[in-house]
Nucleic acid binder design. Sequence first.
RNA 1: GCGAGAGUGGCGGAAUGGCAGACGCGCCAGACUUAGGAUCUGGUGGGCAACCGUGGGGGUUCAACUCCCCCCUCUCGCACCA
Length: 872
Amino acid sequence: MKEAFAHMAEKTEKYDHKSIEARWQGEWEANGAFRTAEGADADKKYYVLEMFPYPSGKIHMGHVRNYSIGDVLARFLMMKGRNVLHPMGWDSFGLPAENAAIQHGIHPAKWTHENIDNMRTQLKRMGLSYDWTREVATCTPEYYRWNQWLFLRLLEKGLAYKKRSSVNWCPECATVLANEQVEDGECWRCGSTVEMKELDQWFFKITAYADELLEFTEKLPGWPERVLVMQRNWIGKSVGAEVDFKLEGSDEFIKIFTTRPDTLFGVTFMSLAASHPLIEKITTPERKDEVRKFAAKVKSEAKSARPGADEAEKEGVFTGAYCVNPLTGDRVPVYAANFVLMEYGTGAVMAVPAHDQRDFEFGAKYGLPVKVVINPPGKELVTSEMEAAYVDPGVMVNSGAFNGMESSKAMSAITEELEKQGKGKKTITYRLRDWGISRQRYWGCPIPVIYCDTCGTVPVPDESLPVILPENVNFTGKGLSPLATAEGFVNVRCPNCGSMARRETDTMDTFVDSSWYFLRYASPKNESLPFTREEAGYWMPVDQYIGGIEHAVMHLLYARFFTKALRDLGLHTVDEPFRNLLTQGMVCKEITKCPEHGYLYPEEAAGGKCSICGKPVSIGPVEKMSKSKKNVIDPDRIIREYGADTTRLFSLFAAPPEKDLDWNEEGVEGSYRFLGRVWRLINENLDLLIEAKAWEGGQLEGGPKELFGATHRTIKKVTQDIEERFHFNTAISSIMELVNASYQLMPQLDGKGADAIEARVFKKAAETIVLLIAPFAPHISEELWARLGSKVPVYRTKWPTWDEDALKQDEVEIPVQVNGKVRGRVRVAAGANEAAVKEAVLADEKIKESVGGKEIKKFVYVTDKIVNMVVA
RNA sequence: GCGAGAGUGGCGGAAUGGCAGACGCGCCAGACUUAGGAUCUGGUGGGCAACCGUGGGGGUUCAACUCCCCCCUCUCGCACCA
């Protein structure tokens, strides 16, 4: 239909996003537009980084949003004269590639590289300002050899070690999972129930940095508070004491951990984790049966997702054993309890029902005594009247020599006493565990060690790196990793003694790869080091890191750990990798459902009817885009139909970056219309605009003065919105206002020449619009800039600056409130004094009426802003 | 339970002590047109009005979406951490 009218010669050429975007992407590529090099002036550097993607095959809207945000910043800062590093790469080891091999018989390498090629093309079509010469892919030997090299350095430092340990095992993925990869007892990737398994594993000693990692969460003002909180929770530091309780009739001790040594005199029983190794030993024969049954029950319950902590009933059984309170000598019965976790502390807890809510509940259930040792200030607790534990500080009682002391002081006093007697010591525990990095998978970085019968565990020498992942292996998806069955890989001579030995066949967790890639971008091609001190020294830290909240703990904590460990290896000098972090919101869309066919893709629900059966479709709540709910929009289609500029613009305009974005196609059309409006504004006046000289200042009146003021106001607003708060949505809306204001001036251009003030002010506005939209919609911006006659591309043009004088208005309209309600407005000279304003206000008929002759008790005037009168 | 964030027109969202609803979507009207799902222009929180309106209730202030206190709802994170 559109074509039928195409012959109706339109006044101006249509906005053809396809040819414009192809042209400028070609130009940028041909000119190496975004290549970066270290400069002399270190404070001009700016490192913008978006989390690199896993090459799943196609980009999704989350990527579009992430990279659009980063690109606005990068392009804006380039125009502001910063030396911007803006790289991109691929987090390209990982399970999906291996699954593709198992399911479709495609080699992971082939699958991955094809996906990378495809996604690179897609990213280039978005017009992102990456320095592609710095591209890295973690699955290439050029990259992963440095993974191996860094592993060896950590090994030398004692920060990598091997131990046999019980690990989380996913039966479906046939691999070990890190603690962080287990969610509610299920595999984070496939959702299978996780089992425990004993295996020899490589670990990184992240716990050696627990304190520093925690401490620096207070020194990252550029990070969102919630991410820091999540990391603090994850590290889970608590300060307290370890206390030894001697077992009655034995030389063994039960070691407990407590954060409340001040309550030690109030211990009335002891709780052990059901899986505590001492349980079996100490349980009296007549109780064995009951205790074993209980332990089995706790174990099975632990496997299924534990119900919400506080609501779960506290249960336990008496073991028949007693231990002795080290300070009071009291006899304390030992229980096995379901709420004590073997993984935390020592797996044993001293129970103080009077001052711990869990112990209180447990004690009440089994009729155990309550002994108060802390009274609230000015009060006395009566055991029989207590309905809950008293957990706050107070004054010590029933605590021997410590009576009368502030409980806060007793904490350390009692700990010191224990230390003096050799019965305990001050201790700090962490929830954070060392990072298990071994994976029984093929598509990952080989761990560079060799096992020799004579020499033991031997590191692969640096000069033998990289340990190449062999291509020729079998994929079954069952049992051992394909590497373990690759004879040519496994069998190797010991680098030490030369006898036949075996290679490690586990590969590294892919989070290792992504823990230092931001450093590799500084020296992407270096063949003798992972990165050089000079280059990393120039670019690091990343000034702005942008990515999804899902990486709040794992990736971001590992990357922080690596940065610190590599610093201590002397490889660079920064403490923290990411100075500022922006966690973008999710991209969401409403769900469409057919009563018969379930979830429908948006295109299957066109017109509100199911495309399969024609039944009306129910439109559900807005949720995160996901394939399972079919509420996904393919960026490729949007870019094809509307162009990259529109797609980027909409994803930035619809919501501020940290909030969730609600995708809707009408909004996309709105953004497209806006770009069309900019296109016409300039092309319909192109001859005049080329000829006119932009107005840069001087005496103005009326329409031109207004537009010139609006131009400068917009420069100021857009600049501040981008650099101070990342509020791209309001930046874009203010450019829209400037475009609207420019259209308002168009009638005044009629019949005027290029020398006319109107034309010159209009030119200034037009130029400004083109430059201000450049970070958001770079292609149309370049095209219009070239059409306006510039030989220099926009990305090398200076970002416009504003003139405070141009913002000033001669006259301002002041709203006048009477008792807080707007009753009228007066026009006064800008900056007028209160007396002058008052005179104008009192002369106004409408306002007079509102005042109704009543007494004016107070007259408030905020210069150029508002008047408020209190009358009665 | 603890922690973080949010609650504003039909919708996405503006406004961080100073005219609530910028900008956009949607909707309505007009212009141009053989035609319009193009474009341009205007209108659009509710109410006939006085007035009423930012989750609810109190407070501070000349002035509160914004600050303080209490409560409700939602989202996210942590969750028997001794």
